[in-house]
Amino acid sequence: MKNKISIYLTVFAACFISMSASAQNKLKMELSYNVSAPLGSFKNDYIGKTSFRGGTGELTYTINPKFSVGLNTGYQNYYQKYGRQLYKLEGNQVVSAVLTNSMDIIPVLLRGTFYPLADNATAKVLPYVSAGAGVNLVNYGQYLGEFGGTESSGVFAAQAGAGILVPFGQRSKQTGVKLGATYNYASYNHNEISTLNNVGINAGIVFGLR
């Protein structure tokens, strides 16, 4: 686990150092750490805990300074263990068990981002709003004690987001820090869960590729 994080950080640093210095890259990349809090039925019926295990990446094509579109993907792992409790099964069957719920979400979204102040040369901070839609690859896991398993599926997903981009130094280098929040909708209905909606808070970097 620690080892993998260090690999990740090394790769992350390598990306950062080797970023292109050429002006006005059309293709950019964004890498973010993401914290996500389940909402609604996802929170109330399955996992109440906020997930600190997640990240997103996006390959972004700049159409003009104000608009860009990107292919956004990532990963978020939700997990909660509930203390020993009695659960009713079919008929008169009762089971005493420690229940573990887990959920992995891999979004694959096409996302558009709008920077209203991008043509203002003096702006130090660029606010943005974004909207995306696509597919969430979902891995549902439930265990009674050590018995259980996972089920995978793909569901429709949509996202709305807002935040700020703080460019480093010269704006033309297109490198910066991005901070934002997203509201994520996913149409999911499985056993006790009727929604996978969640709110994410992300922090990451953006850099030009070419």
């Binding site: 009762v94 005493s96 004690g145």
Partner: peptide, 8 residues
Amino acid sequence: ESRIYITD
């Protein structure tokens, strides 16, 4: 925690 106890 891994154990389950089922009655019927």
